[in-house]
Design a protein around this nucleic acid. Structure first.
Lengths: 250, 250
DNA sequence: TACTACATGTCGGGA
DNA sequence: TCCCGACGTGTAGTA
């Protein structure tokens, strides 16, 4: 049986179903009225309300309110969960070792408890990352400018890691920084850091920010610093593989 | 009835329960074998497997595999969901308008479908943020050094926003940048950007990175740039309120 | 483990 | 709306 579910379970049924879910490497999902305390890197309190609680077999622990993409509280993979019997309620507790973090959920009223023995051997194939932009340029340097020659990819230097380091047709050293989305001040600062580091050792160092667009502030700073911009949108091509996956959109 | 649930629902039952869940502003949760296609800012494909799907009344759409804190695919709040009848399967589709993004889930086998009319009027009270560090220093400037006088908080300048801008006992301008956790290269670059912007107009500008600690690289860059470090850990004090919330830890 | 940087980041605040 | 920066960011890759 892949799924077990109990509506309005008693305390004993919660304990039973929860422990069976845990031991069978299932995803445990709980709909409950609860309050939540967290203490770790920060500290938080959440008063009573109805939430969806998900506990994954890898220790991930999610508490979702009825809005937003983000869980209101959580614990990352590797955390250890336990269910304790409090005075008048059950308490779910998840502990992370390093850094030490404790999440406690007071289960005031459990509306539903379920577990799901999910079988999943697939992982996501994503297209359009910054890495793919850099790969594309490394293979097709003329996308930057005629005569550009990439030399290093992911080149570690004193104060960071340069996406692509190369030379232009005049022998200038060129630092490329890629952004898959509109580049902001942060991106310019990053490029500037790499360029300044290279200039400690070399003359004639150019810095080019490669992105689909720039924020107004990024453009301002880029120009002030004498850095350059090259418009390029990340490719959404599938990486060449033997068996091509058909998509739902086909 | 707050919760409705159906094990191994038929197509018709999926359609019925799903639409009732949507119309009642409930959180809809589905355990299913599915495949997923996404196209928008990036593009992705996910082959067949068992996942937990959550659709919130604000349009948030989450697809969780059995590992990790992060959903493998998602749609943010404001997206519009619909359920279509495909040739041999149901297809869940969520559309975001701007930027245009489409998420499609092919429901091969629905093990469980439920909805949960969650009532929740509470929001998270979090302690230990960077903003609280800055507030603390604004109230207690001597935490930085004797004679420090904070003047502006969240001061917008040409290339960014300075956390705290003030003067030291000798009349030097002081830029403070706060990090609630170990500060890295990025943090130093950020501080350097603010300091350089201020130096366009003023002499004697100091920059101090205020954080619990520094990465090795951050320390290296900070020293090279003549910037300073002040160790400070974010406070986890509750903001003063009338009714103090008792925690589960009490 | 620490460091570095990406992310379909998400989210909130301010102009 | 865009811009800017924080986030208990999480996550992957690498030394």
């Amino acid at each position: 049986m892949k799924v077990e579910v109990k509506l309005n379970p008693s305390k004993e049924e919660v304990i039973d179903l929860f422990s069976r879910g845990l031991s069978t490497e299932a995803i445990v999902t709980i709909f409950a009225r609860c309050n939540v305390s967290y203490d770790g890197r920060a500290k938080s309190e959440l008063g009573l309300g109805d939430r969806v609680i998900i506990i994954k077999p890898d220790g991930s622990f999610l508490i979702h309110q009825k809005e937003k993409r983000e869980p209101v509280n959580w614990q990352p993979p590797g955390s250890s969960v336990s269910l304790k019997i409090g005075e008048d309620k059950l308490i779910l507790r998840s502990v992370r070792r390093k850094p030490k973090e404790i999440l406690e959920v007071g289960l005031i009223d459990v509306y539903l408890l379920s577990y799901f023995q999910a079988e999943d051997y697939e992982s996501l194939a994503l297209m359009g990352s910054e890495a793919e932009m850099a790969d594309l340029v490394f293979e097709n340097p003329e996308l930057i400018e005629p005569g550009f020659k990439p030399i290093f990819k992911e080149k570690s230097i004193r104060h960071g890691i340069i996406d692509i380091l190369g030379k232009d047709k005049d022998g200038n050293i060129v630092v490329l920084e890629f952004k898959r989305r509109r580049a902001d001040l942060h991106a310019v600062s990053q490029l500037k850091r790499y360029v300044e580091t290279m200039r400690e050792e070399y003359k004639n160092v150019r810095g080019i920010l490669v992105a689909p667009s720039l924020t107004s502030g990024a453009k301002r700073l880029l120009e002030k610093e004498g850095l350059e911009f090259k418009k390029l949108t990340p490719p959404k091509k599938e990486k060449s593989r033997k068996g091509r996956q058909k998509t739902l959109f086909d």
